[in-house]
Design a protein around this nucleic acid. Sequence first.
DNA 1: CGACGGCGCATTGTATGCAATTCGCGCCAG
DNA 2: CTGGCGCGAATTGCATACAATGCGCCGTCG
Lengths: 237, 237
Amino acid sequence: MKRRITPRRSGSVTAEPRRPAAAIGKTTRAEQLRRQLADEILRRGLPPGASLDETEIATRFNVSRTPVREALRQLAASGLVESRPHRGAVVAQPSFERLTGMFEAMAELEAMCAGFAAERMSPLERRDLEAIHEELRMLSHDGNPERFHDVNERFHNAIYAGSHNDYIADLALATRVRVQPFRRAQFRNLGRLATSHAEHDRVVVAIMRGDRAGAALAMRRHIELVRNEYEIYAVSI
Amino acid sequence: MKRRITPRRSGSVTAEPRRPAAAIGKTTRAEQLRRQLADEILRRGLPPGASLDETEIATRFNVSRTPVREALRQLAASGLVESRPHRGAVVAQPSFERLTGMFEAMAELEAMCAGFAAERMSPLERRDLEAIHEELRMLSHDGNPERFHDVNERFHNAIYAGSHNDYIADLALATRVRVQPFRRAQFRNLGRLATSHAEHDRVVVAIMRGDRAGAALAMRRHIELVRNEYEIYAVSI
DNA sequence: CGACGGCGCATTGTATGCAATTCGCGCCAG
DNA sequence: CTGGCGCGAATTGCATACAATGCGCCGTCG
């Protein structure tokens, strides 16, 4: 298979000086590829099980196989991709049991963060959390699922940060990312938006009270409800 | 710097046919390197902060830079190594705050595993756990720190497995590995061995009773005591 | 005497060619 | 007709050459 269209190396007096826009990627090609591929996986442009041919990807992005390989290896290490020696890489497709385990882990990790946040959040952080929560309340009325989803992520991220434990926050975020391809778009209907907000409310109230156990419990229940939604989805595949 | 001593590629009628012993590594070179480097880091042959020069490592292991780079990237993804673009890689040297966070996370993750194990372990798994526990009891009397350390790892691994949640088990194990370079050899004195066994005993009793909260609590306390030992060590650096 | 800028060196990032392994496919034997 | 075996094509793994970036050193200027 031909490797590329424009020979970019020597000469190359094309309109494309060397890199299309030097400002686009301020890091290495491998890093850009990693982000791009991760993004496509999370947006389900690359569904679970899709094969990731090194040469094909290299051609598609107009780079050599080397940075593609690095990107794939890093994605494999982060769990979004599964790779077996000499047999190529595919978008990760965990078994049902493992996916269930990941949701359970997410529930526990988020509960852990919420519990720590209840004890450790600064007054400023608490105000910020309440602000995000209020924003979600309004969005749940307006019924803008797209924006709700974004602000919902900010809500959970604020709680991760409030745990004042970056390592646990990293674990929680990584787990959230890994299950992302398997969560269906949940915020289609206003009902789910309102329900989600009500669940959040219990979490926020507990955090504001400094009630560690209550915050953890409320968050665990919230995530477990999310998981239930997922199971319906999984069955309907 | 010269890349290698024997040009291995063409000709190479040396005593070393191609790979020293084909049976040694049944996987790729990058994977072998990853294991070898991880092992050296965990055994503190490569202490935190040590720089990992690609060319130097390639020369040392008599391979090209390509698999070295892959190994380093994977180690970076697993957290044992920190790497910045164009600036090389070093053995990870987390800040004191982050290390504290990692210990806290380990306590919570192990407690989580112990709690699930109390509810989910099969009768066979329980018997195996008790057997390991008994082995540790004898070793704590004999006072063989080396073997005690190995069996201690088997003890904790048995509890990870007993959680019946591979994902959480992976997180717990990964965290344990990442703090490994910062734990001092704790089992020098018999006192610590006996204390550790006593703490384990509470965990085992709770698990046998199916007491989830009790098992989690006992394990959390056990790990926190380990952490205290660490803090003394950290200060004494 | 100190600070700033340019230049050379060392090191990492990328491209490309070759080697090795895997898997499909056809062929032959039972 | 079926099952096993060997061969070839395709794909990944590794080596090497080249490019680009960051860093330190030195000289010059304020």
